[in-house]
């Protein structure tokens, strides 16, 4: 399967679930989807044997906050699938106030380490992930402190 056919087949698979489809680079297709459609989209790619899950990336997008106001913002979660040279990225956005995505470990068991990292580093809870324990951070790491959030600038040494 060459690059263009792979990308087109991914587009065809995800078209019914997508909010928007973009081609930011020659080998990439970005699919913006609603949170509810995440699992069906992953399922569609897996059922069609469209490549493998290459990474789950979380990107923190804080809103420009007013002085003293509570911090608001979103975390964008990117599920990148690779199929030969082609890359398909499913993009979902969750707000800080409700930072939860469903787990995809029941569809792709290998996603567990990626999800544990996402939970720890960006504070996006993966509901139903088989092992939510600490993977990278120490056991005594304080709750609700997520190092890859932009607001994190270091722990207070007590």
């Amino acid at each position: 399967m060459d690059l263009e056919t792979a990308l087109q087949s991914a587009e065809a698979l995800l078209q019914p679930l997508a909010v928007e489809i973009k081609r930011p680079e020659i080998e990439r297709v970005d699919v913006y989807i609603a949170l509810d459609n995440l699992k069906p989209a992953v399922q569609a790619l897996v059922d069609a044997h469209w490549g493998y899950l290459a990474a789950i990336t979380g990107v923190d997008k804080p809103a420009p906050a007013a002085e003293g106001a509570a911090l608001t913002g979103d975390v964008e979660v990117l599920y990148t699938f690779a199929n030969g040279g082609a890359l398909a990225t499913l993009r979902v956005r969750v707000p800080y106030t409700d930072a939860k995505v469903p787990t995809i470990c029941d569809i792709i068991p290998a996603a567990t380490l990626f999800e544990r990292e996402l939970i720890e580093m960006l504070g996006v809870d993966c509901l139903g992930t088989p092992d939510p324990g600490h993977l990278i951070l120490p056991d005594e790491w304080p709750a609700d402190v997520y190092p890859l959030r932009k607001s994190f600038t270091g722990l207070n040494q007590e």
Partner: peptide, 30 residues
């Protein structure tokens, strides 16, 4: 962008996002 290279151990995955300054907004290393 997403950049992949073949490390001795397999596929190395870099996700990079720039924001117009001289520092990256986010670098993800898988």
């Amino acid at each position: 962008i997403i950049q992949r290279v073949e490390a001795p151990r397999g596929e190395l995955f870099y996700y990079m996002k720039s924001n117009g300054t001289d520092m990256p907004e986010r670098v993800k290393i898988r």
